[in-house]
């Protein structure tokens, strides 16, 4: 049971980060970013490339200082930056034009789908279908054999948490906190929240709509990319083709929590992570089916999700 809870919390933190990026883009621009899963994969594969090959002339082991290997955090930051630039370009060159020219909001969906195809195709061409993985960050494991953690809980079974997973979980939690704090307390954060809540009013307050929409898209893409890096190290590896599936997961999360709301994305991420973790130990292969059925039932009672605005 403890193992299930820990797994759920762990994937929940990662999922929340994906959902946060998606919900930010949706809240700001009313664009459903189909390419979010692909951005996540791209982030993971950029991290993989840097960790494995370094920066061309600089080999990856050049970043070991005082016996600590700094290549992974550096790679993670690079992945974030690459994705931020990509996101900013997408917004500025593609989405902005289409939003301005088209008659319907929904036309951006087509564009988003096309960018998803584009990333999918490019990733497959560059990286192939092979599973890419990196070595564990740190050795060691926390285990109940050494030290019982929650002895009071019944169904307690053997419990393992490798140190590298713990480390990655902590990084994910810290990133969520940083994001929430950034949205609350910084100037761009406040501008983006205002834009998401009332675009016209924000404009009248002197918020530069173009600039902050672009920043928002960049931050959303960056979160997806960095989560890709984190999950690359946490799971067995990442495949160039799994982007679509990850997008679908992210959609489930933001529907659960309510689209366009930060708290909803976090809640959705953790709930889905927990449901999957519990489901996999009781239901096996049927987990995703049961989750979908539950989601349909839940949305038919509460169409706007846990804390979303009605109709997004």
């Amino acid at each position: 049971m403890e193992q299930v809870v820990v797994n759920g919390l762990f994937s929940g933190a990662q999922y929340s980060l994906i959902a946060l990026g998606l919900t930010l883009i949706f809240g700001l621009m009313n664009v459903l970013n189909f390419a979010h899963g692909q951005m996540y994969v791209l982030g993971g594969l950029v991290t993989y490339t840097i960790v494995t090959f370094g920066f061309g002339f600089i080999p990856p082991d050049a970043f070991t200082i005082f016996g600590i290997d700094f290549i992974f955090p550096i790679a993670l930051i690079c992945a974030g930056m690459v994705l931020a630039i990509l996101g900013a370009l997408f917004e500025k060159l593609l989405f902005r034009t289409v939003i301005r020219r088209s008659k319907r909001d929904e036309s951006t969906m087509l564009l988003a789908a096309a960018t998803a195809f584009l990333l999918d195709a490019s990733l497959l061409l560059i990286f192939g279908e092979k599973l890419h993985s990196v070595p564990d960050l740190v050795d060691g494991i926390i285990s109940t054999d050494l030290e019982p953690v929650f002895p009071a809980i019944p169904f307690s079974d053997s419990f393992n948490l490798p140190y590298y997973k713990l480390l990655l979980g902590v990084i994910a939690f810290v990133m969520i906190l940083l994001f929430v704090a950034g949205m609350r307390f910084t100037r761009p954060g406040r501008a983006m929240r205002a834009l998401a809540q009332d675009r016209m009013a924000a404009q009248l307050m002197g918020v530069n709509v173009g600039r902050y929409t672009m920043i928002g898209f960049a931050v959303g893409a960056m979160l997806a990319g960095m989560t890709g890096g984190l999950l690359l190290a946490a799971s067995g590896g990442i495949q160039a083709t799994e982007g679509g599936a990850k997008s679908i997961l992210a959609f489930e999360m933001i529907m659960l929590g309510g689209a366009g709301v930060t708290g909803g994305a976090i809640a959705g991420g953790f709930i889905l992570g927990m449901m999957q973790s519990v489901g996999h130990s009781f239901l096996g292969n049927f987990t995703d089916l049961v989750i979908f059925a539950a989601l349909v039932v839940f949305l038919s009672i509460r169409p706007q999700g846990l804390m979303g605005k009605p109709w997004g």
Partner: peptide, 11 residues
């Protein structure tokens, strides 16, 4: 409605 319907049908 809107993106919610789009998302759930995609799933």
């Amino acid at each position: 409605r809107g993106v919610y319907f789009a998302m759930i049908t995609l799933i």
